[in-house]
Nucleic acid binder design. Structure first.
Lengths: 265, 265
DNA sequence: AGATATTTGTTCGTATGTATT
DNA sequence: TAATACATACGAACAAATATC
């Protein structure tokens, strides 16, 4: 494949992508990888059963315990679920969005994300999301959205109250994202929201005085749904943009953010 | 917490978010969850060792095999790695971006993403990425970027050639993303690129005639790096935007995309 | 370099739990 | 209720890897 030219420069047709380590795999890992390949090669779909044959390969046999480890790995990857009893076994499942986000949260376990970084993305994506949704929601979508609206009869008194409201509002945004025609856009939005939610424990700051965010008239969720229903995409987009700016300003101003934990490299 | 009012309506301060199933967990899953909690509660960092005590809980003891399953689960989540030999054991690790993307790929295993959906996001994010990078790259960043540039001395003859070049170019974009100041932005960009990469197998269409994408003068990567170096953010952003539009047009026009596999619900 | 101790990795036999028939 | 088929769990051994002397 690779060749060395006259100048001694190696020209590769397959440039080094991500540096493949490729140490010898453990038996369980090799087995898990093989089964995953078999699933996609044989076109198995969610609900299909993993054939026993695959677990009893003659060439590269593994004992029960090792097979169990491989299956456990596939299970935590959200690829299979096992059922007991007659007719039971390992069945292919589709990784759910919630599960995927659960796995992703580990990514920032030792490396707390920056609130500003999260909002930089949210401000880019969520206005685009509402623009794509304006005038395109059916009755059911509107109803789902309205069911999520939480009205707070009492004004938040402390920064803690306001913070909890801000977090609770994320549910509304999550429903909005789930309605997206672009499923990847929806997923990324929910991911960003979950990152923000996970900062709750850290940011709780009960006593800090609180200067209310000016939200004139109706709460923004009600106004947003109305604009979406009316199909006024530009106005909905602008409203969302303003709302995100307000939220960010509030969180940055009132939440005590722990500095990023550095990862040893 | 929850209260029942006179009308018999239950008012909950914590509205039902995602409907927690909470079936009885398997011993291995319970153990894995407990260890994960212990890791964050005790503030363990990557490199720290998991105390043996945690695996030998008196109250809720599990056998060696079960413990191994729990550890395997944590390992596939990217939270630990185990080493053999004296002083070995299970050590906390930080989930790497590559690993996380590997886990995410399962999300679209039975639900092929739409190329248009991917590009809708890329066109939103990557121009923003280069804008944030313009004039802010140090010598090392520039060098890394330049090392990734691949010059194709021969014009692509078939759609297959051009397709492979388009995929190979993703490496350049990945390096670009890795240089982002906003780590979440970088991660999402790499994720989108990997989604595109995974479509390679599906789209290979060797014989289709190919109408070359007009790229005047120097390849766009060289021009982009120059603009970034010069600090001309607006021009770099516009160039990236045009390039992504070209790539999308090409892929949509010449790649035969398998219809989305529907997931049984 | 080689022996040794330590710790994970793998296997087998067996028993228990659970859902179907 | 009982028989069946399957996953789940336990315990004891042996094999392989690796750091230390």
């Amino acid at each position: 494949m690779d060749e060395i030219d006259d100048a001694g420069i190696m020209t590769s047709r397959t440039p080094p992508l991500v540096t493949a380590p490729q140490k010898r795999l453990k038996r369980s890992d090799a087995l898990a990888a093989r089964i995953r390949d078999l699933i996609s090669q044989n076109g198995l779909s969610p609900g299909d059963r993993i054939p026993q044959k695959w677990l009893e390969d003659e060439e590269n046999r593994a004992s029960k315990g090792t097979v169990r480890e491989a299956m456990k790995s596939l299970e935590t990857q959200g690829l299979i679920k096992s059922r007991t009893g007659p007719g039971g076994g390992a069945f292919v499942t589709a990784l759910s969005g919630d599960q995927a986000i659960g796995l992703l949260n580990n990514l920032f376990l030792f490396n707390k994300p920056d609130i500003g970084d999260i909002f930089a993305l949210r401000k880019l994506l969520e206005p685009e999301l509402v623009l794509s949704l304006a005038g395109k929601l059916d009755e059911k979508g509107i109803a789902t959205l309205q069911a999520t609206i939480r009205l707070y009869d009492n004004e938040p008194q402390t920064a803690q109250d306001a913070f909890q409201q801000t977090i609770a509002e994320l549910d509304f945004h999550a429903v909005l994202a789930s309605l997206a025609g672009n499923q990847i856009l929806g997923f990324v939005c929910v991911f960003l929201q979950s990152l923000l939610r996970d900062l709750t424990d850290i940011n709780a700051d009960p006593e800090q005085p609180f200067a209310a965010v000016a939200e004139a008239g109706l709460p923004y969720q009600v106004r947003l749904v109305r604009l979406l229903k009316a199909g006024d995409g530009a106005a909905a987009q602008a409203l969302m943009r303003r709302h995100l700016e307000d939220s960010e300003r509030f969180l940055l101003g009132h939440a005590s953010i722990r500095g990023r934990a550095r990862i040893r490299t």
